[in-house]
Design a protein around this nucleic acid. Structure first.
Length: 473
RNA sequence: GACUGUAUAGCUUAGUGGUAAAGCACUGCUCUCAUAAGGCAGGGACCCCGAGUUCAAAUCUCGGUACAGUCACCA
């Protein structure tokens, strides 16, 4: 049986505009998914939208629409963005999908029957103008941060999940699965916080009704976490448990504490790994709505193309850490690495091969490619390091051209080795720059698949082609 | 404040008990197949400070300093 691989992104809030943050996680999932597909694994990649809740309901009311109609109109924005970014997901789940709602109710029932859900009172600072709850931290001198009006504590009946009951079990689980949370310093952070104690979690509301009804009390609507997190399970289609949940570091707590606790309660196997990545700043500044410096997907692509963007996001910064996005750095890497190193290598080899042709031989050059290292890096989701190794090999190839001077010697075997090496490079880079890799494959005459790396290239007639990465001045 | 972590060339980072690495940037040289690309060579680091362990510490321990992250109902 083929190995399986199941990767997810968070489900996004449809009222947002897809920006670099959404794009980053989603491209990362695509890179991982394409890598595992390349290896012939049974792979599933799930993304989607989180459509319930008060905010959507009131936004829809303002436009005189039902929440579902409202959400329906917003979904294409995300689907289009993913299409433009060449993202190849297997399923786009919506929390309004019937089948998802059914699963949420089933799991809620299980947890309730187990005695892990009880009726209590949710207490919070409620601003009537905002019609929203705030935490103590959000308040400014006991006033609403938006309306600057005095704010009052309000209580409403709410069902609670006994998260506190799972403190010990979670700590045991982390101990047994030291790779559950990545990067590992995040695991330490979480463990320390869990050791400090856990509060039970409010999981229902009565103040609005746009959500999934609790099966044991129809007056209550399920509030965010049970609903949203369960998408990974309801959308698994036989692939559960997930191999990796990719999340931003802001929502790690929910994925690494609440989520496994819910599953433990429901008697479902927890996921294998939750990976928290960092944030992008833009020209050194925090990206925020108030600054208005959130760059949308179209702008991101317009700088140097989709492949350049996909490449840059994982080349520039170790996956997991924060990075700084700037047009200048993107163009610099594009010019230096994709155009000058990779693009130029392909273009010079193709020109020489067209003139002097290839002759099959053992590709000794390929021995410099550290395939095993690259595999290990992907396994550990050290995507930047995988790229590092691949580009070190591209350098090896350029050095080789220089050393062997095929324009003088007309050595067909050297040109074969180089063409065969380009095959390996294009296949390995396919998860990052899929459409460029496909063009290279067509030009040099090979199939894209992991096994093809070690299969010798046929003695194809290679022709010069259009420049892959045009330099940007 | 509590907890955790980081501190290595101008920049971004790798590294690890035993002569300090890579990429970018910089300087010089050079080929001409190629996208004025490529190649070669070179300069540049008291590996944050102090103490300890050790034959040996950038690497381990302790203290200091600086910086960063996390501190729950925010997808």
């Amino acid at each position: 049986m083929a190995k399986k691989f199941y990767v997810t992104t968070p489900i996004y809030y449809p009222n947002d505009i897809p920006h670099i943050g959404h794009a980053y996680t989603t491209i990362a999932a695509d890179v991982l998914s394409r890598w595992h597909k390349l290896n012939g694994e049974k792979t599933r990649f799930l993304t989607g939208t989180d459509e319930h809740g008060k905010k959507i309901q009131s936004a829809a009311e303002k436009q005189g629409k039902t929440p579902k109609e409202f959400a329906d109109e917003l979904i294409p924005k995300f689907k289009d963005a993913w299409k433009k970014l060449n993202i190849n997901y297997d399923r786009f789940i919506r929390t309004t999908d019937k089948e998802h709602e059914k699963v949420v109710q089933e799991v809620l029932k299980k947890v309730y029957d187990k005695g892990d859900i009880y009726l209590g009172k949710y207490e919070g600072y409620y601003c009537t103008a905002c019609e929203a709850y705030y935490t103590e931290k959000d308040l400014e001198n006991d006033c609403c941060p938006i309306h600057k009006t005095k704010i009052e504590k309000l209580k409403e009946p709410s069902y609670f999940f006994k998260l506190s009951k799972y403190q010990k079990k979670l700590l045991e689980f982390y101990k047994k699965n030291p790779e559950f949370i990545s990067p590992d310093y995040r695991q330490k952070e979480i463990i320390n916080r869990v050791k400090e104690g856990l509060n039970d979690l409010s999981i229902s509301r009565t103040s609005f009704d746009w959500g999934i009804k609790l099966p044991f009390d129809k007056k209550h609507v399920c509030y965010v976490w049970f609903d949203a997190l369960l998408n990974y399970y309801s959308g698994a289609d036989g692939f559960w448990p997930a191999d990796v949940h990719l999340v931003g570091k802001d929502i790690l707590w929910f994925h690494s504490v609440i989520w496994p606790a819910m599953l433990l309660s429901a008697g479902i196997e927890p996921p294998k790994k939750v990976f928290a990545h960092g944030w992008w700043t833009f020209n050194g500044e925090k990206i925020s709505k108030s600054r208005g410096n959130a760059i949308n997907v179209d702008e991101l692509i317009s700088i140097a193309g989709v492949d350049a963007l996909r490449y840059f996001l994982f080349r520039e910064t170790p996956f997991g850490e924060d990075g700084d996005f700037s047009k200048k750095m993107l163009i610099e890497r594009y010019n230096n690495e994709l155009a000058d190193k990779l693009g130029n290598l392909i273009s010079r080899v193709a020109a020489l091969a067209e003139k002097y042709e290839l002759e099959k031989t053992e590709n000794k050059l390929l021995k410099k490619l550290k395939l095993k290292e690259i595999e290990k890096h992907f396994e550990k989701i050290e995507i930047d390091r995988a790229l590092n190794e691949i580009f070190a090999f591209i350098d090896n190839c350029n050095e080789y051209v220089q050393a062997k001077k095929p324009w003088e010697t007309h050595y067909k075997k050297v040109l074969y080795e180089l063409s065969d090496s380009i095959k390996a490079i294009a296949i390995l880079l396919y998860p990052f720059i899929p459409s460029s890799s496909e063009k290279i494959a067509k030009q040099f005459g090979f199939e894209i698949g992991y096994k093809e790396i070690e299969k010798p290239l046929k003695e194809n007639k290679i022709k010069r082609a259009e420049i892959l990465f045009n330099k940007i001045k």
